[in-house]
Write a protein that binds this DNA or RNA. Structure first.
Length: 205
DNA sequence: GAGTAGATCCTCT
DNA sequence: GAGGATCTACTCA
């Protein structure tokens, strides 16, 4: 599965429209080389977080804290934080430095290194849940907050393009998940999923 | 199958 | 001291 991989450059992330970047990330390949193992997967679900104007974002209202500091980094910066005490959520920063836009990667379709994902997650067999949901995919790829503050142009973690493009009718736009507390912004159509992909996280229980 | 609670800990108030 | 960009397992129907 190692076709011609082109690593996405800074210009890809350095765009004003974080929603557009989130959409463009669908079909790209996230590769990690951590613990000496290489794992990769195709991105099939993303969410955009539009910075200071977005109630669901940690940077809403220009809030700037030690935790959200990485949100304000250069385009391509990695922002990982722990949610509910046990889940690591993986974000890529977009737009210019000091503009806290980010894209949350919510689901991957595993490609390489599935056996290492299984080992990391303590599973015996691979199924559709191994990289479904932001908490699961971070664990499967071996990403922790140790990687937060790095960038997606490094040896350890990077995102590449193998030329695959989803057509417009293969992508579904919905509102985001798990951000009910964001009030009216919870209804924004900032979530992108690949139609019919079994690794996409479930709608809502 | 749907709904609910518990796990678990870092961060901000 | 409360709560969170979640996930899983268990209950009940």
């Amino acid at each position: 599965m190692t076709e011609k991989l082109k690593i996405l450059d800074k210009a890809f992330y350095n765009r004003k429209n974080v929603v557009q970047v989130a959409r463009d990330l669908l079909g790209k390949i996230l590769i990690t080389q951590l613990d000496g193992y290489r794992s990769s997967g195709r991105i099939v679900e993303t969410e955009a977080y539009a910075g200071v104007e977005d109630r669901a974002s940690h940077a809403f209202g220009s809030k700037r804290t030690a935790r959200s500091e990485h949100l304000y980094g250069d385009p391509g910066t990695i922002y990982i934080y722990i949610c509910y005490g046990m889940h690591h959520l993986f974000n890529v920063i977009t737009n210019k430095k000091n503009i806290p836009h980010g894209v949350l990667i919510r689901a991957l379709e595993p490609m390489e290194g599935v056996e290492h994902m299984l080992k990391r997650t303590g599973r015996l067999t691979s199924d559709f849940t191994i990289t479904k949901g932001p908490g699961n995919l971070s664990r499967a790829m071996g990403m922790t907050k140790l990687q937060s503050g790095g960038n997606v142009f490094s040896e350890e973690i990077f995102i590449a393009d193998d030329g695959l493009r989803y057509k417009k009718n293969e992508i579904i736009v919905t509102k985001r998940i798990g951000v009910e507390g964001a009030r009216e912004d919870a209804d924004l159509p900032y979530r992108f999923i690949v139609k019919g992909n079994p690794y996409v996280s479930a709608k809502k229980s």
